[in-house]
């Protein structure tokens, strides 16, 4: 199944999806050295987002979160791609400076954790391949 969204940052990635209904704050909410979500009570608490297509509704929290994403990329701990329902400026800027393919305007409830996705940030599309 192919879903049409909006391109935020270019590039393509194919990886397993990790999906949450909760918003994500990269600053304080994700450990950039381990790639794990550390926000207490978050649906993904304790889960690694490294190398996966991270699917969540939108970002939240401090603008420093863009730098956290950059640090994850430098540590090879970043997600392979990001898919949002509605992008916010923190995640958008984080994807640009970290060069993480990103698409928004996707109904994220159509995607399940564990499905393989191809994210095409240059076209603004994602494809669910199983």
């Amino acid at each position: 199944m192919k879903l049409e969204g909006r391109k935020i940052y270019k590039g393509t990635a194919e990886a397993e999806a990790i999906v949450t209904k909760d918003a994500i704050s990269f600053y304080g909410g994700v450990d950039p050295d381990t790639g794990k979500v550390v926000e207490v009570g978050h649906e993904l608490e304790g889960e690694s987002i490294t190398g996966k297509v991270l699917v969540f509704p939108t970002g939240k929290g401090s603008t420093v979160g863009s730098y956290t994403m950059y640090r994850m990329k430098k540590n090879n701990m970043a997600p392979a791609a990001i898919v949002n329902k509605q992008i916010d400026t923190i995640v958008a800027v984080g994807c640009i400076i970290s060069e993480i393919p990103c698409v928004d305007k996707i109904d994220t409830t159509n995607i399940k954790t564990g499905q393989r996705l191809i994210v095409n940030g240059s076209e603004g599309t994602i494809e669910i391949i199983d």
Partner: peptide, 8 residues
């Protein structure tokens, strides 16, 4: 900023 921001 931390090291991440400083790198950028």
């Amino acid at each position: 900023l931390g090291e991440a921001g400083l790198d950028f």
